[in-house]
Nucleic acid binder design. Structure first.
Lengths: 245, 245
DNA sequence: CGTTTATAAAATACTAAGAAATGAAAACAA
DNA sequence: TTGTTTTCATTTCTTAGTATTTTATAAACG
């Protein structure tokens, strides 16, 4: 099983402050440019100034805030935020500010990354990669109607594929896959809306990667993503395409 | 001009510690799993324990370290590092540990991202985007033999293109472009190795984006990237392809 | 009148020392 | 062996105070 771990919250009191402040900023409670009253924050969270400062350092490391003598601690403009950071992404989803737009952005990024990753994986996969991909696929196929197992196996498969590129930067884009799938699964909640069977699409990708056929792998992945997108569009606004009925 | 700003170093004493420790970790001075003696660090950097702690918080936010009671503060395994973080990327390049591999990884990522970005840009570009792209291109064409101006305009063009996608996640992948170009320019230092004229390739991209033709934009970008890669291969190992001469 | 140079103040930045909480491992008991 | 308690190293947090940086203001100067 692939392990992933978010950094914040966790690890003590200050992590709590990081999480809550980060969420607030992303939610827009403190608009960019506005100054955060850190002395007022201290009693609010019931922690000492040191903890607040450490939390702000962490948020600063993720591009959310900056602080200078005489000017104060302020929220940086949105284009300074590390939007690809795992925590920032999670806070964004928790804020549910623009979940639709986020999902759209994530999907567009997947469209670029995953076919290319499939291509690279077909060229570079090791025996271990194939074993991992194979077992993820098997779990996928064996999940049947169990939504949770299905979702987990789906994620596992795509992450293993990224890893099989043996390109660390592709591998680190796992955050895109994780949140794209989570966001999608939230929308696609109603189980009775039987979507297209995803197993054949994934099998085609796996076969191409096994065969070491880059072109086929890329093509199969494009196909799988398109099918998945269609499911999504079909799942969301019920029968929007049939207003006359 | 597009503004970019690295977060660390800067902003006081603690930023210095962050930068130096980050570089050390990425350079491999403290191998993953090893425990960092923070009490010993204190006199070494000549700062108080608080500053060391804040620096470690920042590094923790970027996935480089973690610390737990009774176990100590330790370097996390490499696959926890935020390799897409701007600072981590810079430290990696400063460490020059595996600059070749990094450049290869970056190029492979560009191959996936930029054609897709060109496609999106062709569909979504605003009038402002076209003005910005146009002036970047003009600066590019007018740079002549001035390497520095040429490099700056090149970067500007590609960043503007990312921005024209109007997809924040694509836009934030600017870090990939920035470091890919910087790493490339370091290798491609010798100016007399006259590479292929890059202006026509960029012009084709610009024209397609102007015309709102996604397919043409994607194609043109692929073409430009391929030419650029060939320049690189031609520039590095002199005449390796002609061992018999 | 405009420009440079001192001054003041507001906020962060840093230091220092100690108390509290945590959790891993050892000691102990069943 | 297995489960429970105790120990203790280490981080975590608190508190209080000092230093530094930067901006804005005002004064001196040409």
């Amino acid at each position: 099983m692939v392990e992933r771990m978010a950094v914040y919250p966790g690890r003590g009191l200050h992590g709590e402050v990081v999480a809550r402040l980060g969420l607030r900023i992303i939610r827009g409670d403190y608009p960019p440019g506005s100054i955060i009253d850190i002395d007022g924050l201290e009693p609010e969270f019931g922690v000492s100034k040191t903890v607040v400062r450490e939390a702000l350092r962490v948020l600063g490391a993720k591009g959310l805030v900056d602080s200078r003598p005489k000017r104060g601690t302020f929220v940086r403009s949105r284009d300074a935020w590390s939007l690809l950071d795992s925590d920032v992404m999670r806070w964004r989803r928790e804020a549910q500010r623009d979940d639709d737009r986020l999902l759209a952005d994530l999907s567009e990024l997947r469209d670029a990354i995953e076919p290319a990753a499939a291509r690279l994986a077909a060229m570079r996969r090791t025996e271990d990669d194939l074993v991992a991909l194979g077992s993820a696929f098997d779990a996928f196929a064996a999940a049947g109607q169990d939504i949770d197992r299905l979702v987990a196996a789906d994620l596992e498969f795509h992450l293993r594929l990224l890893a099989a590129t043996h390109n660390e930067l592709y591998t680190r884009l796992d955050v895109v896959i994780v949140h794209a799938l989570e966001a999608r699964n939230r929308i696609q909640h109603h189980p009775e809306a039987r979507w297209m069977d995803p197993v054949p699409d994934h099998e085609a990708v796996l076969d191409a990667v096994r065969a070491g056929d880059p072109d086929a792998a890329e093509r199969a992945m494009r196909f799988a993503l398109r099918d998945s997108d269609e499911d999504l569009r079909a799942g969301e606004p019920p029968f929007e395409s049939d207003p006359g009925a």
